[in-house]
């Protein structure tokens, strides 16, 4: 076995493994022997913001909320576009103005659709 050309390599491998694992093992031993754990109900609680958790985390969220979220996001982005549009309005050409109106119209159409679908009424 010692005559194998890989023997020295395997010795090095074992040494390297020991070099890595020994400190971990020592730390584990130290913690076991010298640092007795002090668990208690409060420490083991799931929530860690100082408040007591109430109820179950596995609850359903109303999907209607997401529709509101999406519609809000769309008009949020629209506002970002509308602001520079309003600022540069007097210097705009007819093409740019039409492009912007098409953009706004598409969003208004979406809003009208959502309104007709009754998304805006919270049930």
């Amino acid at each position: 076995m010692a005559s194998s050309s890989y023997f020295s390599l395997s010795v090095l491998f074992v040494a390297a493994l020991g070099f890595g694992l020994a400190p971990l093992g020592l730390a584990w031993l130290w913690a076991r022997v010298y640092s007795p754990p002090k668990p208690n109900a409060i420490k083991n609680a799931i929530y860690e913001c100082g408040l007591e958790s109430k109820g179950d985390a596995w609850m359903g969220f109303r999907s209607a909320y997401y529709l509101y979220g999406i519609i809000f996001l769309i008009f949020d982005v629209e506002a970002v576009f509308l602001l520079p549009f309003a600022v540069a309005f007097t210097g705009l050409g007819a093409a740019a103005c039409a492009a912007m109106l098409v953009f706004v119209l598409l969003l208004v159409e979406g809003l009208a659709w959502a309104w007709a679908k009754g998304v805006l009424t919270w049930q």
Binding site: N40, I42, G50
Partner: peptide, 13 residues
């Protein structure tokens, strides 16, 4: 105060 004490309880030794 209860929250502070609870947080203290949750801290590591």
């Amino acid at each position: 105060a209860p929250q502070v004490v609870r947080l203290y309880n949750q801290m590591a030794e």
